[in-house]
């Protein structure tokens, strides 16, 4: 990043032609909706065809992130049964303050074996949590992770409202040091050094593939092309919520495998942009508008005062 700035400076120094080019390039780079999204950022593609529901990823995540011991051990597969799913309307288990990732089972009539789906933070390219946070507690790193800073978090939970995937969870059990609990792509311990996250490393089935997001898209497309009967022709996460770093391949419609297929295909900030552009307009226009109304409405009275004042002088 530093390099780029220095380059730009020497560019500016390069006279008029250079300056004009800089301005142009800046302009095009900053036109809304035209961002390059950290071209070298990493991601993971999850192949539902390969997942056998062994929960190794859950166990690895728990260990890596130092999360509390679960009630049932990770080799207990009764957690997949519907009655274990708790009060979530039969939607299966979800991430919470004790687990950053969960695997859920889906029994579907059209395929002979159950389908398992791992869920965790999808690490959006344009994170909704980040843009909704009023203390800037979230950061999208160039490596692709969406990380969280508990030191500035106020606990307003707007990120949980904003996240289209219901991922951030809150440590409701704590009164004095609550915080948001969410998958951070093992950023501190692994991703920063270019290593894959713990869950990917632990997967015995290679259901999770780690790599550059651009390459993963290619891999995904290739798998679909080579086995058109085995996959639906869609990579979940390619465009969902403006694109995510974690993506999925599925043999059945994504809705049947517990995915929210209503997630808009544009970044969440697009829905808020309209209001955000109105704010400075109101801030700049209202003072003169209402001061003007005041002058117009009180003209008569002012004239009266004026005459009286004039008389006294």
């Amino acid at each position: 990043m530093k390099n780029k700035i220095i380059n730009r400076r020497s560019f500016i120094k390069g006279g008029f032609g250079g300056t004009a080019a800089t301005v142009l390039s800046l302009k095009s780079a900053r036109a809304a909706g035209d961002f390059d999204h950290y071209p070298d950022s990493m991601g993971v593609i999850v192949d539902l065809n390969r997942c056998v529901g062994c929960r190794s990823c859950e166990a690895a995540c728990n260990k890596e992130q130092g999360l509390p011991e679960p009630e049932k051990p990770f080799n207990d597969y009764s957690v997949f049964d519907a009655h274990e799913s708790g009060g979530h309307g039969g939607a299966g288990r979800r991430t919470d303050e004790t687990r950053y990732t969960v695997v859920n089972k889906y029994e579907l009539p059209e395929i002979d074996h159950p389908l398992y789906r791992k869920s965790q933070c999808n690490h959006c390219l344009e994170p909704a949590c980040l843009t909704s946070c009023f203390v800037n507690a979230y950061t999208k790193t160039p490596e692709g992770a969406v990380i969280y800073n508990a030191d500035v978090c106020v606990g307003c939970r707007t990120c949980m409202i904003a996240c289209p995937f219901y991922i951030p969870t809150f440590k409701y059990s704590s009164a004095f040091s609550p915080r948001i609990m969410k998958c951070i792509f093992c950023y501190d311990t692994r991703l920063k050094e270019g290593r894959p996250p713990a869950c990917v490393e632990a997967c015995p089935q290679e259901a999770l593939t780690f790599g550059k997001r651009v390459d993963l898209l290619e891999i995904g497309r290739k798998r679909i092309r080579q086995n058109p009967g085995g996959y639906v022709n869609h990579i979940y996460g390619e465009n969902e919520a403006g694109g995510t770093a974690w993506m999925y391949l599925s043999p059945v419609d994504f809705g049947e495998a517990g995915f929210d297929v209503h997630v808009p295909h544009e970044p969440v900030i697009n829905f808020v942009r309209d209001f955000l552009s109105i704010v400075p307009m109101v801030l700049v226009i209202w003072p003169a508008l209402f001061a003007g109304f005041h002058l117009l409405a009180n003209r008569k009275e002012q004239n009266k005062h004026h005459h009286i004042d004039g008389g006294e002088e």
Binding site: M1, K4, A29, G33, D36, Y38, L125, P142, P267, P280
Partner: peptide
């Protein structure tokens, strides 16, 4: 104020800051 922007969300944080 001068920083390469890669994501729209960072861009908005930046322009809103300047606007306010």
């Amino acid at each position: 104020m001068i920083k390469p922007m890669h994501t729209q969300v960072d861009y908005y944080t930046y322009i809103k800051g300047i606007e306010y």
